[in-house]
């Protein structure tokens, strides 16, 4: 049984590392891309994929089912607010373009 726990733990660490890569890529995109829409695109990758991978990795290491469920709720809220904010920024960009 012990090797299963160790394996899951290492799998979790791998997922978290992959999530961190997404975060770094998203941040680099946010800094380097010129257009606001492109930068938004890069940021959403970090927000949804990166956060998701980190949360799944943490769930695998969670001490109990309650902590794991709380982490999943945090992810859902993160997804919801990230997509809402992206929508609002996009809307604002569109209306700015129409004004110009």
């Amino acid at each position: 049984m012990n090797w299963l726990e160790a394996g899951l733990s290492w799998f979790g660490i791998g997922l978290i590392s992959l999530g961190v890569v997404f975060f770094i890529a998203g941040s680099v995109g946010l800094l380097r891309f010129g257009e606001s829409v492109n930068r938004l695109h890069a940021l959403t990758k970090a927000d949804s994929m990166g956060l998701g991978l980190v949360v799944i990795g943490l769930v695998l290491q969670a001490p109990g089912i309650a902590v794991g469920l709380k982490l999943m709720i945090i992810w859902t809220l993160g997804l919801l607010s990230a997509s809402l904010v992206s929508h609002l920024i996009g809307q604002s960009l569109c209306s700015q373009r129409r004004d110009d």
């Binding site: 809220l77 919801l80 607010s81 809402l84 929508h87 609002l88 809307q91 604002s92 209306s95 700015q96």
Partner: peptide, 19 residues
């Protein structure tokens, strides 16, 4: 200022408010 509108914002806020 740019006012924010739209169904997406309203629906999400309605969902999030009780939470």
């Amino acid at each position: 200022f740019h006012s924010l509108q739209g169904g997406v914002l309203k629906t999400t806020v309605k969902m999030l408010f009780p939470l």
